[in-house]
Design a protein around this nucleic acid. Sequence first.
DNA 1: GTTAATGATTTAAG
DNA 2: CTTAAATCATTAAC
Length: 390
Amino acid sequence: GPAGREGGGGAGDTGILLGEGAMKHALNCHRMKPALFSVLCEIKEKTGLSIRGAQEEDPPDPQLMRLDNMLLAEGVSGPEKGGGSAAAAAAAAASGGSSDNSIEHSDYRAKLTQIRQIYHTELEKYEQACNEFTTHVMNLLREQSRTRPISPKEIERMVGIIHRKFSSIQMQLKQSTCEAVMILRSRFLDARRKRRNFSKQATEILNEYFYSHLSNPYPSEEAKEELAKKCSITVSQVSNWFGNKRIRYKKNIGKFQEEANLYAAKTAVTAAHAVAAAVQNNQTNSPTTPNSGSSGSFNLPNSGDMFMNMQSLNGDSYQGSQVGANVQSQVDTLRHVINQTGGYNDGLGGNSLYSPHNLNANGGWQDATTPSSVTSPTEGPGSVHSDTSN
DNA sequence: GTTAATGATTTAAG
DNA sequence: CTTAAATCATTAAC
């Protein structure tokens, strides 16, 4: 059934506390070192510390060692300034230092410094308390030694007990610090939390491509690179954008209809030119007219056939394939225009007569043609694309 | 302050 | 690896 998405439901735990998924993401964030993840996993699993296992410092507890390593790596422990700034610099380099980034990073570093201060203060306090308590016990024992014999072994044992107790407290402190640092990292370094909308121009370029390739909105790697360069974003961002766009378009076509018409009209002139050129090329033997029958549903079921016709008609296979691909990519744009101009039904202004042309009943984009033949490997800036100075 | 829009991530499938 | 789908977290709009 339709699994209703509950947008507002999950937003209840926004704030300091992260949701389960968010925490998992934070732990699994690719910017996080794997060591941190394993450490946190262990912490999460066994909340009961292995207190009794911590005998002395000779057999270093692996968990404690990991905690120490992490704290050192994060710049919490270790040198007061050298380690901290090194970690901050590494983080800055990892997230691509920029002007607006420095502000957030200063904030991040301030918070990290705060954590470090608290950590050191607490650590010192614990150490001092441990020493005081040890001294206190020693004094007690010394006083008792007047009345009864106390062996050095016993004293040593007492000291050991005290140290174990305090080292367990230390461990808890380190644990808390680790978690605090991780939350801090997830809060400042998680890309999801630094989302910025693309520029209007970038969105326009992406939308133009999407709606002019609506029958097959899967840009090739080269096309993605081209789009990325034009939009000043990364290829991954282009992929993300198309992934989001496809699913959201499919989910609610009606909502995007206005946008679709807009971008179709925007590229209509170019498309018309391209098709005109293509038709002129194949005019000698192609009687087919685009609007053959099918007035209501303009689903263009045989766009692939059209392409193949052109290819077979044209003796030159190379040029033919290029023209065919170009036409295929422009057909969607044209369809919108035709849909708009042909729909004289004033009643709804063409709102509801928009049919999910290219979508299967299942909801997937049918591959109009074999992708290998559609994607033109050499997508130059202008194949048929005539002068835009119009 | 609430809600829609949006970019990024996770999960699962191929 | 890519992709669809779900979800998260932020931003913009109301």
